[in-house]
């Protein structure tokens, strides 16, 4: 998956209004609530086979961090 595809899919997962960038800070998004975290867990699992933990969500600060967790090289 390319960076562009990832950004597009992740925006859809978060139901975010504005396009995302790799440097977008998650906490700055209006949509970044507990529901968005659940959707992110499901996205990482279904599209990348990656299991995210509660701790991961304290260390992931930007969209690039989520991409790295998904195994997409930065």
């Amino acid at each position: 998956m390319t960076h562009e595809e990832f950004l597009e899919k992740f925006q859809d997962v978060l139901q975010a209004e504005d396009p995302l960038g790799m440097d977008t800070v998650l906490e700055d998004l209006d949509e970044w609530d507990s529901l968005a975290r659940m959707a992110t867990v499901a996205f990482l699992d279904s599209d990348f086979g990656v299991q995210a933990t509660f701790e991961d969500f304290t260390t992931m600060k930007t969209v690039a961090d989520v991409a790295r967790k998904a195994g997409i090289a930065s």
């Binding site: 507990s34 975290r37 659940m38 867990v41 699992d45 299991q51 933990t53 509660f54 969500f57």
Partner: peptide, 11 residues
């Protein structure tokens, strides 16, 4: 703990 419950369900 909603997050852990969701994770458990999904896993």
């Amino acid at each position: 703990n909603g997050f852990e419950v969701f994770n458990f369900t999904l896993t």
